[in-house]
Amino acid sequence: MSATVSFLLDIKPVLGAFLCLAGAILAVVGTVGVLRFPDFYTRLHAASVTDTSALTLAILGMALMSPSWLVVFKLAAIWAFFFLTGPTSSHAVANAAHTAGLQPLIGAQARSGRGGRDHDGE
């Protein structure tokens, strides 16, 4: 029994570092999506990968590495804050773009690789 507990305590920081790395790699994946996708609205989807899964994985990893409960509380505060405000700022950007008249590419249009239509808001 105690051997199991000490094994878990041994593997905890390693697992934490691994989760951090996984989160960081997901952040790179989301960024690659942002660079590849053809117009603003589709890029928004790629960016939300970073906002949700990369953030969750990295914060879980840091929580596993943390030395005290105080640090875990701070991590939980950051996580909860991001999950409350992340969609709000995404929606704010999307709504502002839509109000300014930026038209999304629909269907097969998006795959043909043409860039998004310019708008006169700038």
């Binding site: 953030l55 991001f82 950007v93 700038e122």
Partner: peptide, 25 residues
């Protein structure tokens, strides 16, 4: 467009928050 830039800056902010935490550890 302007909105691509705002989106990118917002996303960079998220990554910097993670980077600060990781650097701390």
């Amino acid at each position: 467009t302007l909105y691509d830039r705002v989106l990118a800056v917002n996303s960079i902010g998220t990554k910097i928050v993670l980077l600060l935490g990781v650097l701390g550890f």
